[in-house]
Amino acid sequence: MKHQESDYIHFDPWEGDESDIRCRTVKLVKVRKQHACFMGAHPNHGDQHIIERGAVARVETALIDGDFWGRSYVCIPCMDKWLDEINGEDDDK
């Protein structure tokens, strides 16, 4: 991993969203089955792709607007791109 574990956990892809988010848990896990990467679906961060079984990913679970439980998985390479962008780092160095 390129960044500290705490950087991956404390980053909030939902920041600025006006949804009511409660009972939120965030952790890094080794996935036991394939999952779609949430960030891969983000228009500024690449194409939809799969997090393969055995890879480390950030998983977030929360109660959204009091109506449903949401869960999102984000692969470490996508998190690295987003954190580099936030920190003003350039991949071409």
Rank of each mutant, 00 (worst) to 15 (best):
P43T: 04
H45N: 15
V56S: 01
M39K: 00
S6F: 07
R71G: 13
T61V: 12
G54L: 04
A62T: 05
N87C: 10
D67T: 14
N87Y: 14
R58E: 00
V56D: 02
V59E: 09
F11P: 00
R58P: 00
L63Q: 08
S72L: 12
V74L: 12
Y8K: 05
D84S: 10
V29T: 04
S6A: 11
S19A: 15
R53W: 02
D91W: 08
H45Y: 15
A57E: 05
R71H: 13
S19E: 14
H42I: 01
I51C: 07
R58Q: 00
G16S: 10
R58H: 03
A55D: 12
E18K: 14
E18V: 08
R53M: 13
M1W: 03
R53A: 12
A57I: 07
I64D: 06
K81H: 07
W14K: 14
T25Y: 03
R24T: 13
C78W: 04
M79H: 06
C75L: 11
E15N: 11
K93Y: 12
F11G: 01
Q34I: 06
H49I: 02
F68Q: 10
G46W: 04
N87V: 01
R71Y: 08
D67V: 15
K93D: 14
D47E: 11
A36Q: 11
Q48E: 10
